[in-house]
Amino acid sequence: MRKAPQYNRIHRPFPLSPTVTRSRTLTTEIPHELAGLRLDQAMAMLFPDFSRARLQTWIKDGHALLDGVTAIPRQRLLGGERIELHAEAEDVVECAAEAIPLAVVHADASIVVIDKPAGLVVHPAAGHPDGTLQNALLHLDPTLAAMPRCGIVHRLDKDTSGLLVVARTLEAHKSLVDQLKDRSVSREYLALVQGAVTAGATVDAPIGRHPSDRKRFAVRRDGKESVTHYRVEERFPHHTLLRVRLETGRTHQIRVHMAHRHHPLVGDPVYGGRARIPAGADPALIEALRVFRRQALHAARLGLIHPETGEEMAWESPLPPDFEALLCLLRGLA
């Protein structure tokens, strides 16, 4: 897999001008082998670049013609009919564009890779109606208004820094969602945890909503499958830097799994409890641990198959200054 070189961070709206397809007409003949299937089932096979839900919406909205006649999703096929699909991206974003600086790692006509800073919320939500990555993306590239959630296919917590990919076309969106589902997207994180971790391991423990606090998540028997792999990257007397690889992508997954293993992330205000100060720590380290008020988690590496070219691509992000400074203190180098 090709490793991308180090990049220069761009702290201004990046001038992107790809060709983004908003409307086009696709035609094909229904193969006789698909006779007996419903139209939406057949179209999902014939137009794999689009999800079945999106195809059903287009059919219901009259964008699909069968032998020149407006079709319905459950219409049964005989085989040999000619299907004409008017694929059109519609503006689905209600939030406004905002000139928020972003670090663009990679950009082409299909995808944009962003290095998100800690403190930036990904999607507008209660308590964060604006000032989000989604607002920033609309300023970076207004055509993303035509994409579901501006093309964001996976997320990072507000105070987690690092890499995430954004789709710029419906075809790229479908491809990336499928890659996430079949776990072919590679996501590696650096996590600083409390305590001495002796060796790497895998946490295979289902995660669901906390039974009494709806803002938190917990390992629970009736939760969704959640698998996290980790190995030791660097050891300190009372802390461990881990390299973590996600197999699934549940909300707060790394934070919940490491707390479940009794090694919560340093600075985690939800799952970490009070800051643990090592005995004999010098004043600078004590102060650094006390003021580090976000989870020490960084999405350091992202790998995927390019939706258009099929090329395996990967990017790496250096640790942000606050994280690196804390590690330097732990190493006794500061």
Results as ranks from 00 to 15, higher is better:
250 R>P: 05
286 I>P: 02
158 K>M: 08
264 P>T: 07
94 E>N: 09
255 R>S: 14
263 H>I: 03
313 M>K: 01
143 T>P: 15
77 L>E: 07
67 D>C: 13
320 P>M: 04
284 A>H: 12
4 A>M: 15
268 D>R: 07
310 G>D: 11
318 P>T: 04
88 E>I: 14
171 E>V: 03
290 R>T: 11
114 I>Q: 01
228 T>K: 03
81 E>P: 12
84 E>R: 10
185 V>D: 04
259 A>P: 12
264 P>L: 08
90 E>C: 10
92 V>C: 12
37 L>C: 11
2 R>C: 02
274 R>S: 11
266 V>W: 02
295 Q>K: 08
310 G>V: 09
268 D>Q: 06
136 A>I: 00
290 R>S: 01
244 V>K: 13
209 R>A: 06
33 E>A: 12
227 V>E: 09
218 A>N: 08
172 A>C: 08
187 R>E: 05
302 L>A: 00
290 R>I: 04
86 H>R: 10
161 S>W: 01
108 D>Q: 00
130 D>W: 02
301 R>F: 09
125 A>Y: 09
68 G>P: 11
149 R>W: 00
215 K>A: 14
39 L>C: 10
95 C>L: 02
152 I>H: 02
203 V>R: 02
115 D>V: 02
333 L>R: 15
98 E>W: 05
42 A>T: 10
147 M>G: 03
121 V>R: 06
147 M>Y: 03
239 H>A: 13
231 R>K: 13
129 P>Y: 12
262 H>P: 12
231 R>T: 14
265 L>Q: 11
246 L>G: 03
239 H>W: 03
74 R>K: 15
173 H>N: 15
57 T>W: 09
160 T>Q: 06
320 P>I: 07
265 L>T: 04
131 G>E: 01
266 V>Q: 00
94 E>W: 05
159 D>G: 05
40 D>N: 10
